[in-house]
């Protein structure tokens, strides 16, 4: 039992990653990753919302009538996202401006709805909380990988600090501007999925 509870935390990190395997929550994963910092903030916000929505709805699971459960879920999630949005505005205003509508879009991030539907409504609060944290972190990990490559190749910086030395620029190295545009994010995700599936052969489609 102990082991199983622990697995609900670690499984979504790689083997059953929400972005790479379940193909959930793509929209925000791509949009906020032009730089590393918003990607980190977004990963943490989604982890918080996912963990608490799983916890709250798992506690409520026996009292929600089946027919109206989607509205109940959305209201709980929307309330949590409103809180996160206000916290971000209060403490990291510049990042909150950068994330713009994508904070609000955490509500419709399918990872959160998906985990509530698939896990929290049929499991006890503690495993649900861990499952939420695990999925949030799995999502955050992918965001950080994408953000890392896009900021490094697109701007030559990481978290705002210059990483690529000036002598390289003098030798003729140029930042790849395409990395900052939307299509590059899609292609990076495609390649990450390719690498991930090549190492986990059982996920491959015939």
């Amino acid at each position: 039992m102990k082991n199983k509870t622990f697995q609900s935390l670690t499984n979504p990190l790689a083997k059953n990653n929400p972005v790479l395997v379940q193909i959930l929550g793509i929209c925000s994963a791509l949009a906020v990753t032009t730089q590393l910092k918003p990607a980190l903030v977004m990963g943490l916000s989604v982890t918080a919302v996912c963990a608490f929505s799983n916890l709250v709805l798992s506690l409520l699971r026996n009292g929600i009538p089946d027919r109206i459960r989607i509205i109940v879920q959305l209201v709980v999630i929307a309330a949590l996202v409103t809180i996160v949005n206000d916290i971000l505005k209060a403490y990291v205003y510049d990042v909150s401006k950068q994330l713009s509508v994508y904070v609000g879009l955490i509500i419709t991030n399918c990872i959160i709805m998906g985990r509530v539907e698939a896990f929290a409504l049929s499991n006890k609060p503690l495993p649900s909380l861990l499952d939420g944290i695990g999925n949030g972190l799995g999502y955050g990990a992918v965001l950080v990988i994408i953000g890392f490559f896009r900021e490094l190749l697109g701007n030559g910086t990481l978290l705002g600090y210059q990483v690529i030395p000036n002598c390289l620029y003098e030798a003729g190295y140029v930042n790849n501007g395409l990395m900052l545009f939307p299509p590059a994010a899609l292609i990076i995700v495609g390649i990450i999925i390719w690498v991930h599936r090549s190492t986990n052969k059982d996920l491959q489609e015939k």
Binding site: I187, V189, R197, Q204
Partner: peptide, 23 residues
């Protein structure tokens, strides 16, 4: 298509290329 790329992987890359066209 290479095995690991089948399904979503390739779908993302195609979307990326379409996105470039839409640019």
């Amino acid at each position: 298509v290479p095995k690991g790329l089948r399904g979503p992987g390739l779908a993302f890359i195609i979307t990326g290329l379409l996105g470039m066209a839409f640019m």
